[in-house]
Nucleic acid binder design. Structure first.
Lengths: 197, 197
DNA sequence: AATTATCATCCTACTAGTAGATAGGCAAGC
DNA sequence: GCTTGCCTATCTACTAGTAGGATGATAATT
């Protein structure tokens, strides 16, 4: 892959994450990478194709990161914490989630971008479900949440927090949500397992 | 306020929540309300002004709903549940959150829309914080989360879930997140308050 | 080694279509 | 007779995308 092609992909990703799909143009891209609009069409004939490639790259990068988290962390809560810090990078750079940006324009989104976005979220949910399941077997997590619930609240709240804190309080705000997630997923503090009823 | 003006506001809100700010045009609006593009400019001279009005209406409607929830529900968890069901309406109708759509285009968003979006989220966070504080005083909620944390995880996860489940599993998926929130905010099940250390 | 052909990458110049917005006119109602 | 609410026609700026040519590096041929 040529340098220019990669530069285009990187620049396009940033633009979409800051402006949305309809909100960026080949002219914007041209300003940033330093070649003419028509030359961009040489590398990516259509905008849809360009963004489809951006999306695939984004998914691959995340899947790689998830794999590395599993290698580097053993505890379920630490793994989920590390997962949350992936989003934090976006907050710091002022970048929203690519798939959040795409989903905001759902109705006018080309089908392949839609299916790619769906796949992104399913990949993430499935991963958290797996992590939580292992965590439950090791008694590392709050068992009053099942795997589906845990995955849902983790991905949802991190996606939501990334969107909100980019507008409000940045990483400081984001970390409040991260702390709340960890507290919610932690096993209840040392209990005599007494139960009502 | 004339009927046409309200029709335009309603139609514009729907379009933004399904297509984003850059993703909808006066031509789209014209198709839906049945008057010409130029006539829309009579009611709303600029797109920015139109959307600013849409946003204010949206905020007002939500604030009214929050007020009604306080009147109709006494328990903190029931109030937060009712709050979550406001989002659920969007999931059912295939509509994302207006402010989520706007925030996806942050970098190219006119300033007044940005400040309105910020205000929306601050209003919601402040409301949940208040509800949770009262709930804590009445021992209705999980005290291991403070008000800021509770508000953050509620608003973030509901915003995230609305975005995600519109793509994935609709209201069925959304309710998993809602259940997870309620579990997380509930006081830990009957405990002897034994503590380590 | 010199020459030729091929290919990758960029360019200028252009298309048709759409964006938000304006000018000025027409009809109905108070 | 002025205001309200719509119209047609038009404007400029921008959209994604195309046509065809210039450049320069590499490969193939002589």
């Amino acid at each position: 892959m040529s340098d220019m092609r990669n530069e285009l992909l990187t620049s396009a990703e940033g633009l979409i994450r800051r402006r949305g799909y309809s909100g960026f143009s080949y002219a914007d891209l041209s300003d940033r990478v330093g070649i003419r609009k028509a030359s961009i069409h040489y590398h990516f004939p259509t905008k849809e194709g360009l963004v489809a490639t951006v999306l695939q790259t984004y998914r691959d990068r995340y899947m790689g990161a998830l794999h590395r988290i599993e290698e580097n962390f053993g505890n379920a809560l630490d793994r989920i914490d590390a997962y949350g810090r992936l989003y934090l990078i976006g907050v710091d750079k002022g970048l929203g989630c690519l798939c959040a940006a795409l989903s905001s324009e759902l109705e006018i989104l080309p089908v392949d971008l839609r299916t790619g976005t769906v796949a992104f979220f399913r990949e993430h949910l499935a991963w958290i479900e797996k992590i939580y399941q292992v965590g439950r077997q090791n008694a590392e997590v709050n068992a009053s949440l099942d795997d589906l619930q845990a995955a849902r609240i983790v991905v949802s709240s991190l996606e939501g927090a990334l969107m909100i804190e980019r507008l409000l309080d940045g990483s400081a705000g984001f970390e409040i949500t991260m702390k709340a997630i960890r507290t919610s997923l932690s096993p209840p503090i040392l209990v005599n397992a007494t139960r009502a009823g």
